[in-house]
Design a protein around this nucleic acid. Structure first.
Lengths: 322, 322
DNA sequence: CGTATCTAGGCCAGCATCTGTCCTCGATTT
DNA sequence: AAATCGAGGACAGATGCTGGCCTAGATACG
């Protein structure tokens, strides 16, 4: 019976929307007898979703956290919030959950009603470009590729190679990998008969072809290793060494561990080592510490910071007058 | 029957995990006859979740986006990604969905299994403190308060007033409001018999008491208006006026509209107006534009930037030597 | 301290539903 | 043209669901 199942879902939705639900109210909402409400609660419990119940007046039912995730029943706004949140989580590249975030995003976008999708897109446009204005991955492209990976569908896109040359590709995507603030696609290129990795920010108009393929095995333990391997030859990676005039603990609190290591020198200073392949971003990360510091390496970073400092100085020279 | 309902949920989970499912595979997974799979699909359609079906070999079933959100069936990792994503979305304060993100977060955390909650907390610790090191809201506190608002439960916390005085409070929370990079709680303070607003970053150890109360009506159209009103007297708000040496369009692309207005001056320059009550943050936002600029107002910002510029200059003076 | 209010859960009767099997039909791929 | 796969009607047997009635236990309130 479809009414029983949908009533169970409705009950779950109610129990998720608010914490406490007196039985009487559930009777009104679900339009069944008191006895059936009790039975529905029992059914939820059988399904593994623990529903607490408190007797007496002011008692009622309450959905507790169990051992497994129950189905999430979201209203429109919540679905949008989750989509937007996942997009930023996929981009942020700090927590180490980017790949999972993309997977969840794909799952959500597959069933996201059209009108909500529009709203998400509109909100996405209002998001700040990450500092440095560096290459950004279009979240749209990200989900297109991730979906194609999941469903084993060929994708087509234009690619700007490292040397600036453009080419059209049609490949069998294997997996998406997030490495050091960048997204890479590991894929089999049938035209070349070999595996290739592509930087997502160099893709142009990626589109799913709808052509299914039989997934192949990557010639590596896992995709992340493969990509790391194949781009290790790539240049442009900066390792910064900075002396910070603040206690190591204080700096550690401010900087996530993924972004480098902090070692105390004495009570008032510490050495901060961090790497990135985007100078602008690296410079900002250090400048925003908000305390005195000295940069030792690399020279490019020193030059970059110097230029930034000069720019700020110039900007404030006139300042007093206006 | 619990088996029918749970089988429907399982089917939904499968259809969300991958896009295409041949009927035969579903038969294996669900351990029912082919006919029943067809009937289950039919049931899902009746519930409003459009399932596409393709006849012929290589055909199968596929869950499409419909007009309503279906229940989301998440695995552990995805649930974590969503929790983390929502936390950042709640903090980011740029997209205008912070309040909804918190609502969704409360819903999710209510049913999040304990072991997942631990993992989320561990990941949360790895997140970067927003630049400026300014006052940050503990996501934990945020959800505690939001939950209490939703469930009409009194909360207890210590509060550091603007003058630095500490006090213990026990209030009836009404709603959480996000305003200009800060979170506020509008609540009825029974001890004082009046409405108060509290800045969340000034709360200490907020905790739910479990004592329910009867919600009152705020003496204002909506909570946001009330909070905006009651803090409008508060000082320390800076309005920046900056001339940026870049085309207005380019700047607009980089800066979300919520963070101020950009007006062209000529083809190569524009005026950027933006406000915040955190100087450090304001300074960074401007410095990270990455192009030449001049700051006209306010003088505090000029001073702040000047100090920052000097700090960077000092930091790079030694740089060449090492 | 007693009473009212709430949930728990067994039992029953009647009814509706679900399942697997068997069937034909139509669409699609090879 | 043949094979594969989904659609969906019919049927019989088994199963499950619902509401009503009951008693028991816990809690809040006067």
């Amino acid at each position: 019976m479809t009414t029983t199942s949908s009533r169970l879902l409705e009950l779950l939705a109610l129990l998720q929307a608010r914490r406490d639900w007196p039985g009487g109210e559930l009777v009104d909402r679900l339009e069944v007898s008191r006895r059936t409400v009790r039975r529905d609660v029992e059914r939820l419990r059988e399904l593994g979703y623990p529903v607490e119940s408190l007797p007496g007046p002011a008692g009622g039912y309450r959905l507790r956290a169990g051992t497994a995730m129950p189905p999430l029943l979201l209203d429109d706004d919540e679905a949008i919030a989750i989509a937007v949140g996942l997009r930023t989580a996929a981009r942020a590249s700090i927590t180490g959950i980017e790949e999972t975030a993309v997977r969840a995003l794909v799952k959500l976008e597959q069933v996201l009603p059209a009108h909500l999708r529009r709203r998400v897109r509109a909100l996405g446009a209002a998001t700040m470009t990450p500092p440095g204005g560096g290459p950004t991955v279009d979240p749209q492209a990200l989900t297109v590729i991730a979906t194609a990976c999941r469903d084993a569908e060929r994708v087509r896109f234009g690619y700007r190679g490292r040397d600036g040359r453009r080419s059209r590709r049609e490949v069998e995507p294997h997996s998406l990998v997030n490495l050091g603030r960048r997204w890479y696609l590991a894929a089999w290129d049938p035209a070349r008969g070999d595996w290739r990795t592509f930087r997502l920010d160099r893709l142009e108009r990626p589109a799913s072809t709808g052509i299914r393929f039989e997934p192949r095995d990557l010639p590596a333990a896992d995709a992340a290793a493969y990509v790391a391997d194949s781009i290790s030859a790539a240049p442009s990676r900066y390792e910064a060494r900075v002396t910070v005039h603040a206690a190591a603990d204080a700096v550690r609190r401010q900087v996530p561990s993924r972004w480098g290591t902090v070692e105390p020198i004495d009570d008032e200073r510490c050495e901060y080592r961090t790497g990135d392949d985007d100078l602008e971003w690296l410079a900002l990360r250090i400048a925003m510490l908000g305390v005195e510091f000295e940069v030792h390496e690399p020279p490019e970073l020193v030059a970059h910071l110097r230029a930034m400092g000069r720019r700020v100085q110039r900007a404030t020279r006139h300042g007093g007058r206006t």
